[in-house]
Amino acid sequence: MSGRGIWLAVGALAAAAAGVGAVVAHRSAGTGAESGLAAATPPAFRIGYTGSPLLAALYLAEKRPAWRGTDELVRFETSADVGYALIAGKVDAGFVEPAKALLIRDIREFRDIDVIGKVTYPYGGILVVRKGLHLRVQDLPGHTVAISEPGCKLYHALKKDLAWLKVDEARIRFEQLPFDAMLPALEAGQLDAAMTKASYSVLARKLGHDIPYVQLDIAAGDACCPAVVAQTEFLLLARRPARADARRLGQLLLEAQKEGDAALRAATQEQTAIPLAVLEASPSAVYSFADRLLLELFLKVEADEGAEKVGKR
């Protein structure tokens, strides 16, 4: 390849880079909606979600008359995928797990994204035992059990009850895993049991595992993890231009919740194909608008980057 060829290649690459830049600039300037049809009908409001049973209010809201024809549910594999879609403008709002939401915040485009509301679940711990093993708490010695960390409140609650039942705790093999990794590891056969958050109870039962131990008498929150985050299962995030629609959605969710657990469960069963019996064994999650505490948690970190942001709310 001669010298001229090199310059040609460099030139082509530069042109490609410029093209990419142009596309991105255009994207972040627009709302992400189809500009052609915008004149006649209101633009589509797309909501990203993962099909979790905890989003019962959303599924019920979709069936109610207040739901607009232009409101659209878009399903994703994981809430990280919802996050990517939100960043790219492919959805206007989405339900994202708090840990992921914090990571999204670290990506620069988050300055365009607002926290609208949260979905919470009663705090507590459950011991999920892999299907087929049929272990009781007393049978745990000799098996592998996952915990999120040595200081975890749920783990301490379990230890207390193990001592009360005179179970030989030393013979239990404890392994550390993040909460959302526990069920997949259980499925893969790498664990025998997991001490995880009560919010996973529906999923655990749906997969066919046993839950021999439930401890809901635990106060959420500790020094490193405030209650508002510990209990929060999803955050409703929205792109700033779609803020109004997102608040409207929040209202729809509050209305839907008023219809009661039975209606919520029926809608969840339709959307996720989880059997009613499994749904009825667990309490429902609750949507509420983001409160001061939650916003400060997010705002606090944003304020570090530039104080002028605080006033915008």
Binding site: I6, A14, A17, G21, R108
Partner: peptide, 21 residues
């Protein structure tokens, strides 16, 4: 070919055309 490509890879993200993250 590789060295110019590597240079471009280093420089273009830094210009902020696309978010570096």
């Amino acid at each position: 070919v590789a060295v110019p490509l590597a240079l471009l890879w280093e420089v273009i993200p830094r210009t902020g055309l696309v978010p570096r993250t």
